[in-house]
């Protein structure tokens, strides 16, 4: 029997199993035996990826940067959701505030999400620094607590930062454009109360990473099968709606520059427990 392809993913909610059952069934139907390996968090998944417990990892952006760093670049971004490509974070402020531009933020308070959140902490703080506002020096950073092992995949912190702006505990925060669209559509955010004063440079979000030693022919076949999943197929649609995509796309290494730069300049991984 052909050795199964081992795909790692983080099980942050039991419902996630529905997504992976559909993906596994489809790959098996297409002649690629597949084992799904569930990890409790991205730290443990990246350990498993580095050690060779899995061939492919479904990574958060920070987990990708970590995996790339820990393998000395010996991994490849092989596929991602259409919704992962070219995201930005909006820097927002209350509509009735005097903050109308980045320059107005000097001397003010900036609320961040989880310390490991790419879109609401790491990339926005780097963006402020690049625009002449040194965090913790030119602006007070109102930080949120960490959730172990989530590696930024924690939306509660991002929304919590937004609520601090609304509640007057902070003058600005950052929200991923995707979440902005989602939260303004479902009424969680009243867009009439806030304004977007800036947006970061574009960056990519989640990504399938393959180990360098993953067979390239098998990888090509694997990606072809993934990309053949269709929103017109009711079963695939169920998975895609849950995972937030309409189409799988080929992966690329190039969309993680802003996050890589942020983690380096903020010495993010140096501060992590060994």
């Amino acid at each position: 029997m052909t050795k199964p392809v081992r795909i790692g993913t983080v099980l942050y909610n039991p419902k996630v199993t529905v997504i992976w059952d559909i993906i596994k069934d489809y790959f098996e139907e297409q002649g690629i035996p597949t084992d799904i390996v569930y990890y409790p968090d991205y730290d443990r998944q990246t350990d498993g990826f580095v050690k060779g417990e899995i061939d492919v990892a479904w990574n958060s952006p920070l987990a990708w940067v970590d995996a790339y760093r820990r393998t000395n670049g010996r991994c490849r971004a092989i596929a991602m959701r259409d919704s992962d490509v070219d995201r930005v974070s909006y820097i927002i402020a209350r509509k009735d505030s005097a903050v109308n531009s980045l320059a107005d933020l000097k001397g003010k308070r900036f609320a961040t999400g989880a310390p490991d959140s790419p879109q609401s902490t790491l990339i926005p703080l780097e963006f402020l620094r690049e625009n002449g506002i040194e965090p913790d020096k030119d602006i007070r950073v109102v930080r949120a607590p960490a959730r172990d092992g989530w590696q930024g995949d924690d939306l509660d912190g991002e929304f919590g930062a937004f609520k601090k702006v609304l509640g007057g505990e902070a003058d600005a925060s950052a929200i991923l454009d995707w979440m902005w669209d989602f939260w303004t559509a479902d009424g969680k955010i009243d867009a009439s109360q806030v304004k977007i004063i800036a947006k970061t440079e574009t960056f990519d979000h989640c990504v399938f990473a393959a180990r360098e030693d993953f067979d390239s022919e098998l990888e090509k076949k694997w990606v072809d099968v993934l990309l053949s999943m269709s929103y017109d197929n009711p079963t695939h649609k169920q998975m895609m709606d849950m995972e937030g995509l309409k189409e799988w796309l080929p992966g690329r290494n190039t969309g993680f520059g802003p996050l890589t730069k942020a983690t380096e300049n903020q010495r993010f991984f140096e501060k992590q427990p060994a």
């Binding site: 099980l11 039991p14 199993t17 390996v37 569930y38 990890y39 409790p40 443990r44 498993g48 417990e53």
Partner: peptide
Amino acid sequence: SAETYLNVVDA
């Protein structure tokens, strides 16, 4: 522990 049932690593 749904994690044990689902065979999550280290559950």
